[in-house]
Nucleic acid binder design. Structure first.
Lengths: 137, 137
DNA sequence: CTTGACGCTCAAGTCAACTTGAGCGCAACC
DNA sequence: GGTTGCGCTCAAGTTGACTTGAGCGTCAAG
């Protein structure tokens, strides 16, 4: 049952590095289960914590600190706020991502050689500039 | 016509800082139009460059370096590759974002107090762990 | 005529999330 | 019995995108 894995096995399986795992351990984010003569071993529970971290944290979705807080919070209210904030952030990011995607997709089929000269992008940009100086001259 | 803005005006209008603008200038990313006795002034064209930078770069969509390359590339092929790579990245990020959103939304209405104990999330995590050690024991 | 607001340069500091390097221990293999 | 492989610790380095600080110039107002 309680199969224990060495740090390099875990790193290999989760496509990460030994040093990153040591770093997580140091932070207390994913502590190794046991220490036999200073050597770290990981069991299933630890692996689940690790998978959790990678689910939240990868690609900069959530900072390690926030991830730690979500996992650590013994009471519901502590992480609920954080989670719903993060949901708001995600919605915003998704919106921006979609804007960027549209712009980039246009660029690919835009006949202009220099992106700065593209009239379609130019319109957005111009709108931005005008908006920036909307209140004063 | 050619209205010139001071660095602090520009910073205020674009909701950024004077030091960031100086940094962009130093990089050659958004050079100031003129220098009157060492003092920077920005015209419309410069503002358009700045808006462009913020459109691509904000929220970590694109690094400043990539942004620079897209704007600088005099030939189409130079930035086309970059742009389509970035489109791929965006698609991936969007997918991960959606995964994360689903997980977080579930958490908000999950009766469990500790996210690590949630069976719905647990299933994903478990799948990850198993997948990680799929090839060896 | 000094105080304040704004501008400048150049060097150094900051932050997150790691990585790298020095120097060590222990076990196995040739 | 040396050397390779994996593990360890602790301190310091890295990267990107800025920020901060020291020290200075310039001009308008009080």
């Amino acid at each position: 049952m309680a199969t224990l894995r060495s740090i390099s096995e875990v790193a290999g399986a989760f496509d990460t590095t030994v040093s990153a795992l040591r770093y997580y351990d140091e932070l207390g984010l994913v502590p190794s289960t046991q220490r036999r003569a200073r050597v770290r071993y990981y069991d299933e529970a630890a692996l689940r914590r690790l998978a959790f971290v990678r689910l939240w944290h990868d690609d900069g979705m959530m900072s390690l600190e926030d991830t730690a807080e979500v996992m650590a919070g013994p009471t519901r209210d502590q992480w609920r706020t954080l989670v719903s904030q993060r949901l708001d952030d995600i919605a915003q990011i998704a919106a921006r991502l979609d804007e960027a995607r549209q712009a980039l997709e246009h660029l690919l089929q835009c006949p202009r050689d220099n992106p700065l000269e593209c009239p379609v992008i130019g319109e957005r940009i111009q709108a931005q500039v005008e908006l920036a100086f909307a209140t004063n001259t």
